[in-house]
Design a protein around this nucleic acid. Structure first.
Length: 618
DNA sequence: GGCGACTTTC
């Protein structure tokens, strides 16, 4: 007890000392200093002393040591031959090893065999099996196993319910997750512990309910369940993602000073990521220093975040320097780190460098993934180096890489080809795909339709749409929106109207974008009255207009010189704190210059002008 | 006796 108190006090003093000098809000002129230069710090030595030793941990049993699926199956076969059967614990250890290798479906097979053979499964085994279902996004099957628990007289505990709760959240079934959580408490099915709270809080954060997440944090505290660093880190991360750095910082202070909970590398990574996204480099630099003082070693994630942020700022040279430091510190960069650097080169159009790095990776034994190929193909397409892109793409297909890489590569290629207007080549690629019996996924299908429409080939797009017919692909609102937009842009309003009408027949709900493209199409033909009616219908259809919708209708009014309506709409926009987009403001300025608009409106308009436009030096 | 659930990077 005394030791724990002492260590808390110690950590408190340590942190206080640091925090005074490294407050979040102190401005400073230095850029990301990279204070963790190879000479200045003990961090590298720390890394040496802590990472690789495994002393103190009990040795792993034979069942936990399996390294391949084959090993696991062989061992399992051997186990079930034995008489008497090994204990359920041995089976659980083996199952666990299989899940650690992410072979969830094989693990479930083994579990089923255990049931058939009559190994008495325990709470542990049930939880492992349920976890496998959840990890494969088959949480419903997990609940079916919960039913088996009851039948087998296994009373589910907080571990099993946490696993299920996590499964629901992974599948974005937040309402059901909340319902389960409340039900567990109300019916006293289990006493939620800190992990269950953190799972629920993660779910709330995932759906942007930071406030409720914080309220739950308070609630758990009151009900005597002490929050830990995971809970705080989860909420801090969510606040950072929503750019609410000051709130995150407040919570961080609360955790450290009021609660005496030590932050870890994950807490710092979240904060650093948040600050990087806002380009607040001075504070990033301070946090890195703070980590060093607290002897928290930056890890792979920390470095990846820095590399990514620097690349996005176009500071690729500094990103390279960070990678060098990583290597010096024996933090081995992974494919994610290199992907961000490749993406950085591609963003600057430095395709030769990107390609060289890519080639060096493959020879170093890294396996490029979907993101790697996407970045490169996108880079080539954007730099209009279609030949190189095609070349790389053929390399991918020749190597017979994973289907997801191929599909992703295909859609990137198609997008690139359409963007430069090479519809023929796109068509050829698409036909090749079909002749190989490949069915495009929703995304690729959308890319093709969009590409055709943008190249004024609406008829082609439509004939493809009809060819696809009544499949699942055509039951997607995004597909309809693309086609309605394409038809509208080409002045084929009758087609747009038919498609829009078909939506209701098919039972599909138009979304805010569908309305916008339809309104735009109507305005394009001068049918502003009809556009207005549709605009008014949005609210009652439960799809209220947004900033973009207002801008579209406004342009229609301006083109038709309906200045009374313009004024009314501008006032509504002001009331909603909306702003004008680029084309609407251009049109407005044009009308003001022509003297068509009342000068009394100028004040209102200047309020609605986008900030970027007001700040242009010209 | 041993075995289980939660947080960060493209």
């Amino acid at each position: 007890m005394i030791t724990r108190l002492n260590s808390r006090l110690h950590c408190f003093i340590n942190l206080t000392g640091n925090f005074i000098t490294t407050s979040f809000l102190l401005p400073s002129s230095s850029r990301l200093g990279l204070e963790f230069s190879p000479h200045s710090t003990s961090l590298a030595s720390l890394l040496h002393s802590t990472s690789f030793s495994n002393n103190g941990d009990p040795p792993l049993s034979r069942y936990q040591k399996v390294t391949s699926l084959d090993d696991a199956f062989n061992l399992f076969d051997e186990m079930i031959q034995r008489k008497p059967l090994p204990s359920v614990i041995k089976f659980n250890q083996l199952l666990n090893a299989v899940t650690k290798m992410k072979h969830f479906s094989s693990c479930l097979d083994l579990f089923k065999q255990m049931c058939v053979i009559g190994v008495p499964v325990s709470k542990y085994s049930m939880n492992i099996a349920i976890k496998c279902c959840c990890q494969m996004s088959r949480t419903n099957d997990g609940f079916a196993l919960l039913g088996c628990c009851f039948r087998r007289a296994v009373v589910p505990n907080v571990f099993i319910f946490s696993t299920l709760l996590d499964g629901l959240i992974r599948e974005d079934r937040i309402i059901e997750a909340e319902r389960l959580f409340k039900k567990l408490i109300k019916q006293k099915l289990c006493e939620p512990d800190v992990v269950m709270y953190s799972t629920m809080i993660k779910g709330l954060c995932k759906f942007g309910n930071n406030d409720i997440a914080i309220r739950l944090l308070r609630l758990m505290d009151e009900s005597g369940c002490e929050p830990n660093v995971v809970i705080y880190s989860t909420i801090i991360d969510s606040l950072c993602k929503d750019k609410l750095i000051e709130d995150a910082s407040k919570l961080f202070n609360e955790m450290v000073f009021a609660k005496g909970i030590q932050p870890d590398v994950i807490t710092y990574n979240s904060l650093i990521h948040g600050l990087c996204n806002l380009c607040r480099w001075d504070e990033v630099s301070k946090l890195l220093k703070e980590m060093e003082d607290l002897r928290i070693s930056p890890d792979l994630h920390t470095f990846s975040i820095l590399v990514d942020a620097l690349c996005k700022e176009g500071r690729v040279d500094e990103a390279e320097a960070v990678i060098d430091i990583m290597v010096e510190r024996r933090v081995v960069p992974d494919i994610v780190t290199y992907n961000t650097l490749i993406d950085g080169y591609c963003l600057r159009g430095e395709m030769t460098k990107a390609r060289t790095l890519f080639d060096s990776l493959t020879s170093k034994g890294f396996v490029p993934n979907v993101v790697t190929y996407s970045s490169l193909l996108n880079g080539y397409c954007k730099s209009l180096k279609i030949e190189e892109a095609m070349h790389l793409f053929h390399e991918i297909t020749r190597k017979g890489l994973k289907p997801d890489i191929e599909m992703d590569g295909r859609s990137t290629m198609l997008q690139g080809l359409f963007r430069v207007g090479r519809c023929g080549a796109a068509r050829k690629l698409f036909d090749e795909m079909r002749s190989q019996g490949l069915i495009p996924d929703e995304y690729t299908y959308g890319v093709i339709l969009d590409g055709l429409c943008n190249n004024r080939q609406v008829e082609e797009a439509l004939s493809l749409f009809h060819l696809v017919g009544d499949s699942k692909l055509n039951s997607d609102i995004v597909v309809y929106t693309i086609l309605i937009e394409g038809a509208g842009k080409c002045g084929k309003l009758d087609i747009a109207k038919t498609l829009f009408h078909d939506l209701t027949v098919k039972g599909l709900q138009p979304d805010v974008r569908t309305y916008a493209v339809m309104i735009s199409g109507l305005c394009g033909k001068g049918l502003v009255e009809e556009a207005k009616q549709l605009f008014l219908k949005m609210d009652e259809s439960g799809c209220p207009p947004n900033n973009a919708t207002y801008n579209v209708l406004l342009q229609g009014y301006l083109k038709k010189k309906k200045y009374d309506d313009v004024e009314k709409l501008l006032q509504e926009m002001d009331g909603r704190s909306y702003s004008l987009d680029a084309s609407a403001s251009a049109l407005l300025i044009d009308r003001i210059a022509a003297g068509s608009l009342y000068r009394s409106l100028l004040k209102l308009i200047s309020r609605l002008m986008p900030k970027e436009l007001m700040e242009t030096p010209s």
